[in-house]
Amino acid sequence: MDKIKIGIPRSLYYYYFKDLWQIFFEKLNIDIVISPKTNKEIIDKGISMSNDEMCMSLKIYIGHVSYLLDKCDYILIPRIDNYGLENQTCTNFLATYDIINNLFNKKIINYNIDLFQNETELKGFLKLNKILKRNKKQIKIAYEEALKESLNIKDKKMMKNINNLKNKKIKILLLGHPYNIYDEYIGDPIVNYLKNNNIEIIYSDLFDSKKCINKSNILTNSCYFKYNKENIGSILLSKKYIDGIIFLTTFPCGPDSLVNELVMRKINTPFINLIIDDSNILTGFETRLESFIDILERKKIHE
């Protein structure tokens, strides 16, 4: 029995499921390859392969996939439709599998999450039994253990994030999708710049998801994008402690363009809106971040 190797692109879904996937495949004793952090080569490849109107994050994803093509047997691409009708995802999360499948001639491992039609994550994993060459019982056990451990890891991160709220430094809520915040090319330069300026960063994705979704009703009552609801909820949960908010978006993100605009009109915390596209990435932002930090510092002194 020859061993299979699964490639995981370090973009989009990776940042939501990285612990789950890593532990799951480790338990099943299956090798995985994760593409390296986003670099210039991957971005250029992604841009050349994709349609020019796709959002920056999806272009980067395509770049990662094309990096993995000759390094593994399968590529793991889930499809996430919704977590119930009021918790839908961006349409790109619905379409990535089919887009990649048509762009590249490569075998793909795919599972579907569609709670509205009763397709849970566990069901999706169980259906992988033939490709992974493991029986359903093994998969179920591995999945349950992986889920538990990955939640523990997230809990620890969340605790740290919440503890940071009590810090006396200037605190900025970095608000965006995790695949943007943690990306080497999109979020990292901003995170590094803030850290160098002695600022405590609060991450918007490290809050309790359920609490966030419940809270988000205060700011918007007809929103049905799960990831955006989580972001909005994080504002409400941390509002009392933070000094400012950075909205980090890639161009042209659909849900963000609507939801963030609405939120910006309703909150009274100082904020700055950074939109990142595939042209030169950091130069322009340094000036804007600098003046934003200046304002926050002055405000803090006056208080």
Partner: peptide
């Protein structure tokens, strides 16, 4: 060509 609905 496609396995799932792709939104809208």
């Amino acid at each position: 060509y496609i396995k799932y609905k792709m939104g809208a």
